Computed example of a mutant assay.
Amino acid sequence: MNLSAHPVVASLTPVFLLVALGFMAGRLQWIRDAAIKDLSNLVFLLLIPALLFRTMSAVRFEELDLRPLLAYFLAAGVLLAVLIGWRGFNRRSVVLALTGVFSNMVMIGITLVELAYGKAGLVTLLTLVSVHALLLLTTATVVLELAVARENRQAGAEQPHLLATTWSAFKSALIHPVPLPIICGLLFAQTGWSLPTVIDRPLQLLGNAFGPLALVLVGITLARTPLTGHWQSALWATLSKNLVLPVMVGVSAWAFGITGLPLTVMVVAAALPTGANVFLFAQRYEVAQETTTASMGVSTVAALLTLSLVMLVMSWW
């Protein structure tokens, strides 16, 4: 048997090679620290919106199956609650729980799923992506604000109104370079129109540039990630994110009667390493920043094995 021809190997190898090349570029300092933010802005503000809008601009509402949304976020919500309850209700607990639940669906997931499962798989993934940050990050914001309010009450300090904070978090998550172009693309698709070639072609070229650049950027970021001193917490977060969540999502999907390609894409999405948005929460709430960074790094490195295992199991399902 030609191992290199196996679909799991064929789809994972280019992903991890590009991450490895980015890691090498980061270690050799071919990309300066100041340029990383500019590259990130290029990916998130130009390339991602072009890819997401173009992909969803041909998808009709009647073609969408919303059961994966219910199944995935039920499992993610339950795991988030269990992890918070396990560590106790405080800011650190919430941030570390989010680290064990929030997947890197955009930077790694989009390219991987398209390589492995084609456009049909990508539509299922983008359905999840469209509300992934909106639901999980808004929920995390509300829970974190409740934790901060509890701490402030204990300290006798004033706290902004929770509804105002929640509304602000919801708006920030909605008016964002990921969900907004997906929603706009879906709305455009319902008109029955087709994108003119002079618009469609540039969007296609921008979208094609997203995958390689995003994966190289993951590697560059990984090269700048300190992993020492936080191994125990990072390993617990990695176990939760890379293995426990995909099992829970698989069970939840089975309970909803989801089978075939949508089930596979959901489980693979759940097995992706921790997404970078979690660090923004650690930074904003000034808690567990080094642990979160280390967890993202360990989760990404471990995904070389855990993601391969999950995809292999799902290929036999």
Rank of each mutant, 00 (worst) to 15 (best):
A276Q: 13
G275P: 00
T300F: 04
A270D: 13
Y285E: 07
S299H: 06
A271M: 09
G297D: 00
F256H: 07
S240Y: 03
P273M: 10
R284A: 14
I258R: 13
A294I: 09
G250D: 01
Q289V: 14
A282Y: 09
W254P: 00
M266H: 04
G260N: 13
V265D: 07
T292G: 06
S295R: 00
S252M: 10
S295F: 05
N242Y: 07
V267D: 01
L261H: 07
T300C: 02
S252I: 07
M266S: 02
P273S: 07
F281G: 05
Q289D: 04
V251R: 09
T264P: 01
V298T: 03
F279P: 03
Q283T: 09
M248Y: 09
V287G: 02
L243Y: 03
V301K: 03
G250N: 02
P273A: 08
L263V: 01
L245H: 09
V287I: 10
M248T: 07
I258A: 08
T274M: 15
A270H: 07
G260P: 01
E286K: 15
T264R: 15
E290A: 06
G297N: 00
T264A: 12
V298I: 12
P262L: 14
N277I: 08
T292R: 05
R284V: 10
M248G: 08
T274L: 11
T274E: 00
A270K: 02
T264Y: 02
W254M: 13
G260T: 11
A255H: 10
S295P: 08
A288G: 00
V265L: 13
V247G: 06
V268I: 15
L261Q: 10
I258P: 01
L245Q: 06
T300Y: 02
T264K: 15
P246L: 13
V267S: 03
V278C: 11
A294V: 07
S252H: 11
T274S: 12
L243E: 00
G297K: 06
G297C: 05
A255L: 15
Q283L: 14
S252D: 06
V287E: 14
T293L: 15
V287H: 11
A276R: 12
S299R: 05
V247S: 05
L263Q: 08
I258G: 03
K241Y: 14
Q289S: 07
P262F: 14
S252W: 09
S240P: 03
V301N: 00
L263I: 01
T274P: 11
Y285W: 13
V244L: 15
P246V: 13
F256S: 03
